[in-house]
Design a protein around this nucleic acid. Structure first.
Lengths: 318, 318
DNA sequence: TTGGCTTATACTTATCCTGAGCATAACCGA
DNA sequence: TCGGTTATGCTCAGGATAAGTATAAGCCAA
């Protein structure tokens, strides 16, 4: 084992690869989650990894700022992929994509840049469960997935497939789990129901709605959405997507947009207030219908005060 | 932006890098967490990324199996680092480390391989809070950290530093948070209190106990421990580290070993049982002191039945 | 054989958190 | 002034959690 390690550093040239950074840049505008896209909304922004920065993180930050003309709020690494498409070709140098999740606001993008923002549910229509799925989409999905299950060789494999479908898509009385974005996409890919699968060699089955992307980008996007949906539950990252002042309903709408689900209004407020995440600005929202709401701002102090992580272990206090 | 993307694929040769896989392989033996090490316990096993596999994951799996002679249970990607040490040299090709967390059992390692297992608390003595810290270590840590806080330029910077110290190390009446492994290591690095910092150019301050590793490896290990400590709370991954049959106390000891904290016995059992994670084998533990305990086994079925993810959003059911 | 030590396992209790709903307040426009 | 709309305060039941008490079942030494 030690030998392997030493060999690795000696033969550096032999394992040369190309590395790219891929960014999932998210904003929420008018209660809709958006992502920055290029190539006519068919790809995520990406660039070569050729920075002289201390870390990948600052490299991405610098690159995005150079491209968009505006600083990036929250950044976190997502995942490192070996491109699925080119992997079959064992002779070519491997291509690695290091993906990042970044949170900003749409209005922060400077002018003169050719960035586009696309609603993320264009790529994953089934992920928006805020008002249930459109009946036609729900039916299409269910029937195609059932057909795929049935196409397995043995009865037990068929049952296995359907159980997986039911869990990831919340069928058969099961609950919808909004965090399983990646699992759902990968299942659809496996079932040959997305254009990328057909492109990569699957038999051209009937494809379901949802705009494809080039390369692995839709998979990377799914990873980003899943991560963000998990993160908003235990870290106050939504505020990176909000204007400096907002009403509690606006905040709620943003969370709902990201989660793809509706939340209980009063309980949502209780949650926010008891965690002391926000403070009143004193101002009142203007030009609204109904009773005017108080404006709040994020209490940046909480980030310094707390290191919020939830415990599920029955820790002993003694 | 689209231009940048296109340029990236054209100049593939220009952004060549070397990529290595680094593995944090964990086992728990006799209530002590161990990691596989090489180079006289001074480095994590690592190898070049030169596999013709479909994914990085299977690449790592194959490599570990070849090296240790045994299959790997659970595998997950940790993080991709640009090596901190070599980053200053902007001319050299960048080196990227893609790190993975893997769970096995020590006895699974075949013979004839030169793998070594080291207790992970050798590298992070302060992370074992099961029986409190040894008084001397606690004192050394606190005083060195306070000195570092005091060495800041202004009073406000000093306060800021100390608040960070207090939060990450649970000082000043704050609670210890076992998940902040990486934050603690990085703070110690920043404060120049670990050998790696001195090696990388920090002034040779008084260094605290804890065995160093080459390169970024101790940072990668910290990332792995943190990830595992978080994961055991919401996914049944501990069982990958257990023998096929075990008592509830053994299970508890393993969890405690990983978390570095003690848990409440009765509540721990209730938690395990109500989640239906285990089932009785019918057998009884032999050669023990005290009342003999029932033996249990992991119910592998739960993995298929559930997609356990916790919700903290006040979701609306209507 | 019995008392003491150790661990296993069953119950109890108080408290907090969560989901859900009711009620009232404050604004607008017809 | 009434109806529509959103804001905000409050209650209530059920479940989860933290912590402790009590009893069971082995072993060993006196």
């Amino acid at each position: 084992m030690a030998g392997v390690s030493r060999k690795a550093s000696k033969t550096g040239a032999a394992n040369a690869t190309t590395a790219d950074l891929v960014a999932v840049l998210v904003a929420v505008t008018d209660g809709e989650p958006k992502i920055m896209t290029i190539a006519n909304a068919g790809a995520l922004p990406s660039g070569p990894f050729e920075f002289a920065h201390r870390s990948l993180q600052t490299g991405l930050r610098a690159w995005v700022e150079a491209q968009t003309g505006h600083p990036l709020g929250y950044v976190e690494q997502l995942y490192t992929f070996a491109d699925r498409g080119r992997a079959g070709d064992a002779k070519s140098p491997h291509s690695i994509s290091i993906s990042y999740l970044g949170l900003t606001r749409e209005d922060k993008v400077g002018h003169g840049f050719e960035a586009h923002w696309s609603g993320w549910y264009e790529y994953f229509p089934w992920e928006d469960q805020r008002s249930g799925l459109p009946a036609t989409l729900a039916k299409t999905l269910a029937s195609r997935l059932r057909a795929w299950s049935k196409s397995a060789a043995t009865a037990s494999l068929q049952r296995e497939r359907w159980q997986r479908v039911a869990i990831t898509f919340g069928l058969d009385e099961r609950e919808w789990n909004e965090e399983l974005v990646l699992q759902r996409y990968e299942l659809l890919y496996e079932a040959g129901l997305v254009p990328e699968a057909v492109r990569d060699g699957a038999s051209a089955a009937a494809v379901i709605p949802g705009r494809p992307m080039s390369g692995d980008h839709r998979r990377i996007l799914a990873t980003g959405i899943a991560r963000l949906r998990a993160k908003i539950k235990y870290r106050p990252v939504v505020f990176e997507l909000m204007p400096s002042e907002f009403t509690l309903l606006q905040l709620q709408r943003s969370v709902e947009a990201l989660a793809g689900r509706l939340v209980h209004k009063q309980n949502f407020r209780r949650l926010i207030e008891q965690q002391q995440l926000v403070e009143e600005t004193g101002a009142i929202a203007a030009d609204t219908v109904g009773r005017p709401a108080k404006l709040f701002r994020f209490r940046h102090g909480v980030l310094a005060e707390r290191a919020v992580v939830g415990t599920k272990l029955p820790l002993s206090r003694t």
